[in-house]
Design a protein around this nucleic acid. Structure first.
Lengths: 152, 152
DNA sequence: CATGAGCCCTGGAACCACTCCAAGGTAAAG
DNA sequence: CTTTACCTTGGAGTGGTTCCAGGGCTCATG
């Protein structure tokens, strides 16, 4: 199979497969005389494994580490389990953060609507100045780049 | 004030301020003869406004648009309000996604623990293969790069 | 054989909001 | 004069793709 076939079967783009290869997550495939990548069935499984791990919340780097251990004859399962626990923690704290954000945003929108009612059309209502104040330093993003989950 | 002062007062790094300037979100400041940027009080407010807008969930690009309208003598408030509604929608759908993810992750971890119990130490438990299946295409990330919220 | 459609190749830029770096200049204190 | 702390610039890095230009290949039809 050529890259397009594999891509279709694994529900990713051909670019994504080449990307994984560049990062060393997929072994270098055989090539035709024209330089085309040629894959076998097992390749679909490897791509899907990576996708599943990403959806779970692992980073490509982590997946690469696990796969590296495995290729070296090791058994990464304990590491995988530990990393999974961290993913869960991160998600839970994100949910808390987002929930708090949502509440604050709702309040802000309500405040804005009132302000807009009190402001004649064409006049500035200064909504941006009415944003909640910065009272905590904006340290550390924690979003690891999760994709839309079909986790459940 | 020099850039470091402004940065400290607005709780951001000097790099961030230069970044905003590069993007046109902050006006080009006056310079000393040595080329140092010099700011007045109002600059702190401008930086904080941007930070507040980011925390709310707007992108720098959006903030730039709003500020551009304003600088052109316009009144972006209606646009700001509409964009705010979209931010709320996005956050709510993220919360739903993350909650579903969390549940699935918990299940997966439980499955893994059982598997690990049944697997002799040093043997592969194949946790990665036991990840939930890819049944939906992984289209579209939606994470807009939100930072840790102190929204409430 | 020529043409076109559809696939493939490579290396690199783009996304976002920064962050960090090198390599150098400046200011103020001891 | 030295040290320390600040400042300057342009550019690269983060993550997980996606998209692009500019070219080559394959196969089917005219």
């Amino acid at each position: 199979m050529r890259i397009g076939q594999i891509a279709k079967r694994a529900q990713v783009s051909a670019d994504t497969i080449r990307h994984y290869e560049r990062l060393g997550l997929l072994p270098n495939p055989q090539r035709t005389s024209a330089g085309y990548r040629m894959y076998d069935e097992a390749a679909v499984g490897r791509v899907r494994l990576i996708q599943n791990a990403l959806r779970f919340g692992f980073s490509l780097k982590q997946v690469g580490t696990f796969l590296g251990v495995r290729r070296a004859g090791g058994v990464p399962c304990r590491n995988v389990r530990a990393a999974g626990a961290l993913v869960l923690e991160a998600i839970e704290s994100q949910i808390l953060d987002l929930t708090a954000s949502r509440d604050s945003i709702k309040e802000t929108l309500a405040k804005w609507d009132q302000r807009l009612l009190e402001t004649p059309e064409g006049q500035p209502a200064h909504l941006l100045e009415a944003l909640p104040l910065t009272d905590t330093p904006p340290r550390g993003s924690q979003i690891t780049g999760r994709r839309t989950g079909q986790h459940g």
